[in-house]
Amino acid sequence: MAEMAADGGHGGGNHPLRWTSPMSGFMLRRFVELIAGGVKTDKGFKEVHLNQVAKNCSEHFGLSITGTQVYNHLRKWRARWVKISKLRDISGSLWDDTNYVISLEEEHYLGHIKDHPKDVEYLNVPLENYVQMLAIFGSGIATGSATGAAHGEDGGVAAHGKEPCKDASSSIGKRKRASLMSEEEVLVMSNMSDAVCEVAIAIKSTGEAHPKLYNSVMELPGLARMIY
């Protein structure tokens, strides 16, 4: 992933800001340093943190970068983390914890890429900034829209007409629960929490739910273990 376009704003003139790989890595490392320094992110990074990282990036790269641009870019990395978490659950996949590679056998890989061509950047190649993503998103930190409270989306403050969802880490981050669940199960639970949250928002906004929805959800394989 050589570049990511920032959503809105300009950097250093009239040209749209482009996030290069070095810029992305630098930004993510600044957030990791904030977490290591004791910043609480159970409700997402606050606006002061976004602006601080934006200032760090601006000074380091000689560009004009805003907290909103940092927020939008962090959301993109959070989306990548969710994608990686799902791909690690593919049947037959192997995880290289040294090089951070999701591996598939050649035939399986070719078949998967044929059906999902965009996944080529995630499979059988070292995952860029995996360690940083793990530190930021791996324990339910900065979930939802990746940052949360400062911009009010899925981080404890309602935004754009949506009601906030409870952070997945509040339900799976307890020591007792964590000790009973594997890393893969924690990731599945986190992703499931995000999906259920969206369903709940949709139901509440329409005031209607399919009569068979409850039974369909409760009959999902493995759901009882995740809940209890």
Rank of each mutant, 00 (worst) to 15 (best):
D96T: 02
P22K: 08
G12D: 15
E59T: 15
L127H: 02
K114L: 08
G207S: 04
K83C: 11
E184W: 07
D119Y: 05
G62L: 04
R30V: 01
I172N: 02
A200V: 12
S170F: 08
L17Y: 04
M218C: 09
L17K: 02
I136V: 04
G8R: 06
S58E: 03
A79I: 11
D97Y: 02
G12I: 03
S170R: 12
M133V: 03
T66W: 04
A6H: 00
A158H: 14
L110D: 14
L213N: 04
A158S: 13
G148F: 08
F61M: 06
R80W: 03
V82N: 11
C57W: 00
V196N: 07
H151Q: 14
G138Q: 03
G92I: 09
L127C: 03
K162Y: 15
L17W: 01
A178G: 05
R75D: 11
N129K: 15
C57G: 01
G173R: 02
S93D: 05
N51Q: 13
Y214Q: 15
E106S: 11
G38F: 08
S182I: 07
T41C: 08
E107L: 10
T143Q: 11
W95A: 03
L34E: 12
A135Q: 12
R18Q: 14
L74Y: 05
E106N: 15
R29L: 11
S190A: 08
N56L: 13
G25I: 05
Q52P: 02
H112P: 03
G155F: 07
